[in-house]
Amino acid sequence: MDVTLHVWRQKSAADRGRFVRYEARNISPDMSFLEMFDVVNEGLIARGEDPIAFDHDCREGICGTCGMVINGVAHGPRRGTTVCQLHLRSFRDGDTITVEPWRARPFPVIKDLVVDRGAFDRIIQAGGFISVPTGSAPDANAIPIPKPDADLAMDAASCIGCGACVAACPNGAAMLFTAAKVSHLGLLPQGQPERRQRVRQMVVAMDREGFGSCTNYAECEAVCPKAISIRFIARMNRDYLKASLME
């Protein structure tokens, strides 16, 4: 099949950037979207043109490195799927596809489709942990955790930190990402001692990075490759409210 790509090209953070049109010819519907980029890049290199930079690593939907906005949708048309797991059979022969990087002030473009998501790391550094130095842990079965709690914590913990939530949010908010971590740790007994402090510090860090606020559009949930629910945002709001006003 053949598709026409409009890809955002930007040499560096300082460059203004623009769309460039590429034709991807004779590609197989069994290719992943990134493999199509590989093919396009091989062609570019052969012509002596700079290949398109895009982030990726595991190519199996778990590391959270990849991410592109495809025709206006973060990670493209298939729900619950990262772009590395998106295959061309989700498109039609002759389609025109627009590809842009995540766009948010806290995610500055480094080059082409590659952005800097360091803001996420800084949010975690602000409190996304349980303080338990190596060696100080009690026996793993010392604290039973009801299965529903453990399962719900796991739902939240499955976040891969790709940033699609921010990319898709009309406000550029990082609420789903932050809420997933706050909820994961806040749902477990081990996470209780630092619960209030954690949510306060993480929300402050999130705001400091310059993310937007939450209007409850739920676009984040729609593009999340792990289908993390916005119920966790409500949980974080509750925790934050309690932590800020009580104590």
Partner: peptide, 13 residues
């Protein structure tokens, strides 16, 4: 396993 559980790793229960 002890260490990981204490860190909040949500192992299956």
């Amino acid at each position: 396993i002890d260490q990981c559980v204490a860190q909040g790793v949500p192992f299956a229960r």
